[in-house]
Design a protein around this nucleic acid. Sequence first.
DNA 1: GAATTGGCGTTATATTATAACAGTACACTT
DNA 2: AAGTGTACTGTTATAATATAACGCCAATTC
Lengths: 167, 167
Amino acid sequence: MHTQANAFNSDAFNTSHNHEHCVNAALLSAKTLCRDRGQRLTPVRELVLRLIWQSHQPLGAYELLPQLAEAGFNSAPPTVYRALDFLQELGLIHRIASMNAFIGCSHPDEAHPNAFMICRECKSAAELDTAELKSALSAAAGALGFQIEQESVELMGLCQHCREAAK
Amino acid sequence: MHTQANAFNSDAFNTSHNHEHCVNAALLSAKTLCRDRGQRLTPVRELVLRLIWQSHQPLGAYELLPQLAEAGFNSAPPTVYRALDFLQELGLIHRIASMNAFIGCSHPDEAHPNAFMICRECKSAAELDTAELKSALSAAAGALGFQIEQESVELMGLCQHCREAAK
DNA sequence: GAATTGGCGTTATATTATAACAGTACACTT
DNA sequence: AAGTGTACTGTTATAATATAACGCCAATTC
Ligand SMILES: [Zn+2]
Ligand SMILES: [Zn+2]
Ligand SMILES: [Zn+2]
Ligand SMILES: [Zn+2]
């Protein structure tokens, strides 16, 4: 079963759901967010967002290009990077620095750290719930006088699914 | 004052010390570690390690090339990347993915997560003490059935030094 | 000292990302 | 509706980061 509520619960590792629902919910939410902020979710941007959301695995910019071409858009790097920058600035996607790849944000309306679990087996990535994590980070850094402005947490490992499959 | 003990206390933000001591201690420690593991700290590798340690700021591979050339080594990318890979595998340096850059490890003898604070002002980076952090991460990820194998934490912000200077 | 291994030099190329400028669509004013 | 400015996109070129592949030499092993 799959409700809008859990479309945003970061459970990308559970692949046994109708992911099209997630994608549609994310697009709807993105449209609202853009309207609220006076930004335009143009066709290229919307397509890029859809393509990224369709994948549970972070996608590289150059993986998107052929799909843009297929949809009749210009498929030169600047096109996709511009869309990615826009989506990132609005908090609709995150960049996974260790992979040079991008993935949809599961709760773009609230400010939160960039924190992901990435499965080495299925390559899926899911956002980490970060209320407690954030305070642990602040405490650790604050003890050394460091004031955090932006977090990036990327945890590599095995998701539950792949762990069970490996047994 | 500056003892070997605090050469490894991660306080890269405190620039008011004789950093040459840190560098020498790191090189000495690297030599021991290599000998123990039957690895060779060749001249190129040693120079790369020294260059990286000399900087409190993470250095990119291509920043090292001219300095290798100056020292009479080949200065093509593969040379420096091979040295960097070697040093990384031995845990002597860390890669900061969000910056495509490398920095010396302040405690290469003990296994630990890749966790850094990076100052946006002075660009210095310092390792985070991670005993508690690690358990916070494991707890957060474990609650979702994710088994962490490798951590990467990169915190951007302002170090104490720059924070005080900004007042 | 022959064979094997590991490290380096070298050339070429892959991958990721941005600069710069021209044209086009949209939003806003009048 | 026409004019005007702005934001978005197309296009070409190039920068920045990283790796593949191969051959040579030096060290280690047998
Ligand atoms: Zn998010
Ligand atoms: Zn998995
Ligand atoms: Zn370290
Ligand atoms: Zn600073």
